[in-house]
């Protein structure tokens, strides 16, 4: 294939296709599904942070939700206290969460597997309590109110009337595209190869001249920046508060990454769509059964957990892996 000669151009091509598809799809959906698609687009950035951290460099984090919260609070405080625009606030969210990732990375580079998982889990529990500790700044349990604002007038004159959900989608998709492009380029670059070498065999990587701890910390910085952007966008839907970034959000990102395929961008895309639309899908499929509310509430969790277990046991490469094999045959 000639496209192998220039991966950057090929990546750009695919990302532009993705953007066009989402824009066209987004215009025709009802507001609820526009909102859901916007959430897919936001969480995709977070799932990509797992793809980079766990899929590429082999480190696990159960605290990505906490890093999303860092991004969310950073952007909300920038908008509310400094009065800066949403776009600047998002840039600041990326920087602040990347710095948090640097701190975390220093501790994390020394830890592996279950130690890292446990430590990041404790972090995810501890960080929200800061919101109550400094209630005057972070707004306590209630949180801070922020939103995407109104779509700019040039967008309205180009597309006609744009609803709030549609604007969420349109504001998010360009940033998701940047994240996709960045991930694709990292994966096909020297850096990506070094991360994979560390994942596959730390001692061998180190003997080949890869600085293992620096690269592990760097992975955390990049991954945290992604998580921060995802969290900032996620918060802009209305509220930035402890209830918006629960522990289960970290697990949702991880589930998405695993189900779709931990090691590929296509997997991240499939996985984020799956975790967002799965509850809707289950609700739709079981409507004829008239399940009780109690069972209906817990069914998505049960099915998600079972799918996660089946994936790690039977098909650890995720859905993307199945598609890939099929294509190669």
């Amino acid at each position: 294939m000639s496209s192998h000669k220039n991966p950057a151009a090929r990546n750009l091509f695919f990302v532009i296709i993705f953007a066009i598809v989402i824009f066209i799809l987004g215009a025709d959906l009802d507001p609820y599904n526009q909102g859901q698609l916007a959430v897919v687009s936001m969480l995709l950035i977070g799932v990509l942070s797992v793809t980079l951290l766990t899929g590429t460099s082999g480190q696990i984090s159960l605290g990505q939700g906490a890093l999303m919260a860092v991004g969310g609070y950073a952007s909300a405080l920038t908008i509310l206290n400094l009065g800066l625009s949403m776009w600047l606030a998002l840039a600041i969210a990326i920087i602040v969460s990347a710095m948090a990732g640097l701190l975390l990375g220093f501790a994390a580079a020394r830890l592996t597997g279950p130690y890292l998982a446990g430590t990041t889990l404790v972090l995810a529990l501890a960080l929200p309590s800061l919101a109550n500790r400094f209630e005057s700044v972070f707004g306590g349990d209630v949180g801070l109110n922020v939103d995407f604002g109104n779509p700019p007038s040039w967008l309205i004159s180009a597309f006609g009337e744009i609803g709030y959900e549609q604007w969420q989608l349109y504001a998010t998709v360009p940033l998701t595209c940047l994240a996709l492009l960045a991930t694709a380029n990292i994966l096909s670059s020297r850096t990506g190869r070094m991360w994979r070498a560390i994942r596959d065999n730390e001692s061998a990587a180190s003997l080949m001249g890869v600085n293992v701890s620096t690269n592990k910390i760097f992975t955390f910085v990049v991954s945290s920046g992604f998580a921060g952007l995802s969290g900032a966008l996620y918060g802009l839907r209305g509220i930035v508060g402890p209830s918006v970034y629960p522990i289960s959000l970290s697990l949702l990102l991880l589930t998405g990454a695993i189900l779709g395929g931990l090691r590929s961008i296509a997997g991240a895309l499939i996985g984020s769509a799956l975790v967002v639309f799965l509850p809707d899908l289950i609700e739709w499929a079981t409507r004829p059964l008239a399940l009780s509310e109690q069972i209906g509430n817990y069914l998505p969790g049960l099915i998600g957990g079972v799918l996660l277990l089946l994936t790690v046991i039977l098909n650890p490469g995720g859905i993307a892996n199945v598609l890939h094999h099929h294509k190669n045959k």
Binding site: G113, R199, I313
Partner: peptide, 21 residues
């Protein structure tokens, strides 16, 4: 699961799946 790092990581994910179930 071919590498040490993933052998340490994947059972953690599996146990989280069990917790969810």
């Amino acid at each position: 699961l071919a590498s040490d790092s993933m052998r340490a990581t994947v059972p953690v994910i599996a146990s989280l799946g069990i917790l969810g179930v």
